[in-house]
Design a protein around this nucleic acid. Structure first.
Lengths: 216, 216, 216, 216
DNA sequence: TATGAATGAGTGTTCATTCAT
DNA sequence: TATGAATGAACACTCATTCAT
């Protein structure tokens, strides 16, 4: 009984070890350079033992991605209710999302850029109706709905606005990850500017901005 | 000497052929499925001959990416002057950029996601002062300057606004490429919405939007 | 001691379980797809435990084959005494033999095609004197002796005739197993024709067939 | 030009070497123990080179089998017309067939016992109408027709008789191969008895054998 | 210039077997 | 008695690269 528990723990630890190692390799060399043998070498076990803990390579990749996805998601959702106004919640959410992503850059990239069906099941967000299916988008969408409550805005446009925030945020994250030599200060400036300013611009739309009309 | 010139031309042609073929493979199967053998098969030469024209696979990839970057650039710049108002030029530019990228999705991804220095030399755009160095950003920046001429907006904010447009556009492109199963109609809707609406929102800022203020 | 007996019984049961399972796998997937893991999975034990009951895979295969041989044998011998005339007994025996074999095709093939000494100890039938050593052949031989009682036929020829019946029967069985797509009707026709007609022709010989002489 | 010819010859030689080696392995260890690595080791080349000459393992197996089949076929057909009477031709054909098979025992087994579709395309002989499709059977069938010309025998029975000769012959060959320890003399006796006597019995049928009737 | 032969390292995966517990 | 962790050898196959010609 105590034995069983220890076993279970050990299994969990080994799985953890394998997944972490896989994450590291993905982080340093990219998803397509990940190999069972590389994992085995790193953890100093024989390749075969890995099949004790995971059915095959796909299961490992699946797990790595799911973990990545969960990390991100929890980071975002933890912020859901902290802010009072919907727009502040949107700001907070994107901020958290960006931070979380930048804490696991390569893993995040691997997940987001993966075109396999299992990955897309988690990451797809551009299809029609995504705001009702995807947790992250749903949260965003609800904020937007609150913001526009009582105003005549089509559901469609609201969904697309949410999608555009997602897309723009991802774009920023990708670029910040790829341009890894940008100094800390500039990073912060860009993130701040994006979350404090750009997100707002996208979210609020331009319904009444006579001033800006005059600019163009 | 005439002989030499012919030789040189032939060499150039062969290099061209190899690179074009590599591009095609990347376009249809992705960067990591590119192999010397595949190129050789397609051009109906033996794999070995390729090493006559390029040191190794990496050199081929490097060249492909450089060409990819140039293609994109020319697509964008060709549109520079067609539109009258600056905001229309911005719209047009992003539209062209998106179209061009989506016509060579895998190649585009390969270029934009490449973290090597030589790639970054072309693609880096988030550093301070980028709007003065990077052709694409410069064009954008100039439009924004025109838009805000006579208004009190800091150079800094204008540069960052340009960078945000770049970043958001890339995000949209990436997602459109990755979520390859989205139907044509939705694609068009999103692109339209982005170029007609979102770009505007980002570009114009929110200086005077009392209406929206009331929303939040 | 009671305990010991129970233990022994349990061991026997476990061995039985393992062997039956192995037989099933051989039957459904073929001998070369048999693996310790597959057996273990099926009986819901760990692979290692199997080594408690059998030295190695070969020992298991050996046992399976022995059992297979016995099954066939009992199927044949059960028919020994049912028929009155010797030729009817021969017919009945071959019929039973064919039926029994076709009920366990893969196992039968595995046994009959196995060239190991232990397998051959059971299956060898072509050596001189086989009709006195091999139960199946002995039965056949006795029938033939009865048939030819009072006629001048050499022991030798009689033994060889028996061997030829064995050989032909095996040939038919093998082909029926290998050509697995033959429809039921044709199968039956062939088996019938063989057991009713061909076996007779072989068994009876051609001592007096003037008619046929005239054919050649 | 001379170079090309030499190359072609060398390729042919290498292919030959690979196939012969594969045959040897099949002969000594069985078809399912055949591996690319084993071939490579035996011919003292690296495994990869084998893929220069053959697409994959299946292609090698296919070639081995085809060669085997052809060898047998030519052995048989070479004898077709040497004999005068049809029954002598049948005898001669089976004799040649047996000899040919015993000269390449394991290869023959591998071909005849292979259940894959491509193998069966060559070896299947029990289906209705086989005597019109399979060269070997056709030859047999024609002999039988000649023998029974002018007598009232159904096509069906004639075809089945042919099939039974095939089946019996295969049975004999298989057993002679498997029981590899039988001494030369006994082998010869059995083969002789089969070809001189048994084949005759099967072929001629038992229409008029009053004598034998009395036996049963 | 161009080829094809050849290699060695690498891929994912399966398996029989051993051993400490 | 029974387990699960672990290994090492084997499997088919792919690839970048080299080299003699």
């Amino acid at each position: 009984m105590a034995v069983e528990k220890r076993r279970e723990r050990e299994i969990e630890e080994m799985k953890e070890l394998i997944l972490t190692t896989a994450s590291e390799i993905i982080a340093t060399e990219g998803l397509d350079k990940l190999s069972i043998r590389k994992i085995a070498n790193k953890i100093e076990y024989s390749p075969s033992i890995i099949y004790h803990y995971f059915k095959d390579k796909d299961e490992i990749i699946g797990n790595v991605m799911q973990r990545g996805y969960k990390k991100i998601l929890s980071a975002v959702s933890s912020a859901k209710m902290e802010q009072e106004t919907p727009i502040d919640r949107v700001k907070q959410m994107t901020k958290n999302y960006i931070r979380a992503a930048l804490h696991m850059p390569e893993e995040f990239m691997a997940v987001q850029l993966n075109q396999s069906e299992i990955a897309l099941k988690h990451t797809a967000s551009l299809f029609k109706g995504a705001s009702k299916e995807k947790p992250a988008l749903t949260a965003l969408y609800q904020c937007l709905q609150e913001m526009y409550a009582g105003h005549d805005v089509s559901e469609d446009k609201l969904e697309m606005t949410g999608q555009m925030i997602v897309v723009a945020t991802l774009g920023l994250i990708f670029k910040l990850i790829i341009e890894k030599d940008i100094d800390e200060e500039q990073r912060e400036r860009l993130i701040d500017f994006y979350t404090e300013d750009i997100v707002l611009r996208i979210a609020k739309g331009t319904h009444n901005d006579n001033y800006i009309e005059s600019l163009s």
